[in-house]
Amino acid sequence: MTRVLLPEAVRVGTAPSAERETRTSAVALRDSFSVGVALVPLGLAFGMVLTQAGLDWWWATVFTALIYAGSFEFLLIGLVTALTPLGTVALTAMLVNLRHVFYALSFPLDRVRGVRAKLYSTFAMTDEAYALTATSASRSWSGPRIVWMQLYLHLYWIIGGTAGALLGALIGDSVAGLDFALPALFTVMAIDAARERPEDVSGPLLAFAAAVVAAVVAPGQMLPTAFALLTVALLVSLVASRLRSRRA
């Protein structure tokens, strides 16, 4: 067993670095496939919604390449076409992407070597990239393999988005209703998030109430109002539960 494995290990260890790099990128390409089959169609939908909203097709490339936060990019189309103030854009981006803060607790950035690679790796730490590194199979992945995987996911998203935008520019408004892809995406994400915490029933209900109240009271500022209401409601329930546990 060791006699068979040893020469192979030695050969890999002494292989020219360019060859090793090619092998790592090929393995990472396979790692990225499972997510790629979902990212490309979503990117296509994103690009089509973007051009249907009246933006030039190349904005899809700018959004997907520079922002690289799928669900928020979808949302940003609506925000910018409504000329939403930049402060609200920042606040919404913060709340929608707040979950990424907690990915840092377990994302294997310590395996990624070099400042540039680390910078890119944090930039490209999307839900999908995080999910792939959270699998048990990924525990043995090297830093370069992780960064290559992230790069492929990034490329799927850019290519899907750009292709969708070009397609959208071609067919124009003839197909109405594609914009439902965004509420559908959020519905699916909400169901998945709720499934992870089945005991938390009041959170989603409070959120729904906050959203309805904000839509009625402050239709022009619905998102910041709803998020503020939700945060206050959750903090109140936290204080209440701490008081209860102290009394008990």
């Binding site: 669900s71 909400a190 938390d200």
Partner: peptide
């Protein structure tokens, strides 16, 4: 927050 934020976004 995450579930709540997503519910708000659906609405």
């Amino acid at each position: 927050m995450p579930t709540g934020v997503l519910v708000v976004l659906v609405v």
